[in-house]
Simulated scan of single mutants.
Amino acid sequence: MAKPLVTCLWFDGQAEAAANFYCSVFKDSKITQVTPMVVTFELNGNKFMGLNGGPKFKFDEAISIMVNCDNQDEIDYYWDALTKDGGEESVCGWLKDKFGLSWQIVPSNLGELMAEPERAKRVMEKVMKMVKLDIATLENA
């Protein structure tokens, strides 16, 4: 039987602080182990390991974690929570949290909105002009 995948996130001595921050943002979360080298935690049923690996590697936009949101209130909540205290807004629903990890905060129905080619073009034109995504604008595209 296949074992679940675990995402390893490399931090410069901030793994426990990051895990505590992420667990404060996601309601269905928990820290499962803390050692000087690693912190394991779960966010919405997804397993992560924070590694205190030192300063050699940094996060960049080549990898991100996508949060599917059912309504604008959820988008606003995750956007505000993940950008607070030093996070950075980007474009098209992307942001970086205060640890430099990239996130995509998107409507759960984005795939449905992009299913039909002509509508997908209109939706993408709207997305490309946004910072935080607005569900109503995308649904009306």
Rank of each mutant, 00 (worst) to 15 (best):
K121S: 11
L133T: 09
F21C: 05
A115I: 12
A17T: 09
W79F: 00
P117C: 10
I63P: 03
K96W: 02
K98E: 01
A18G: 07
M114V: 06
W10E: 02
F11I: 04
S24D: 14
A141Y: 11
S64Y: 10
M128I: 10
G45K: 10
T35Y: 01
E89G: 11
C69D: 05
D80H: 12
M49Q: 07
G93P: 06
C8E: 14
T35E: 13
G100Q: 01
N140F: 02
A141P: 00
W103K: 05
I75S: 04
T83G: 05
F48N: 01
T40Y: 13
A81E: 10
R122A: 08
P107V: 04
G87Y: 03
N71T: 04
Y22W: 13
G45W: 11
E74S: 04
T7H: 07
K56G: 00
E74M: 00
F11V: 04
W79Q: 01
E88I: 03
A81T: 04
K98R: 14
G53S: 05
T32E: 15
L5F: 14
K132C: 01
K129R: 07
C8K: 15
S64R: 08
K3F: 14
K27F: 03
F26P: 03
E116D: 15
K121N: 12
N20L: 11
G50I: 01
D70N: 12
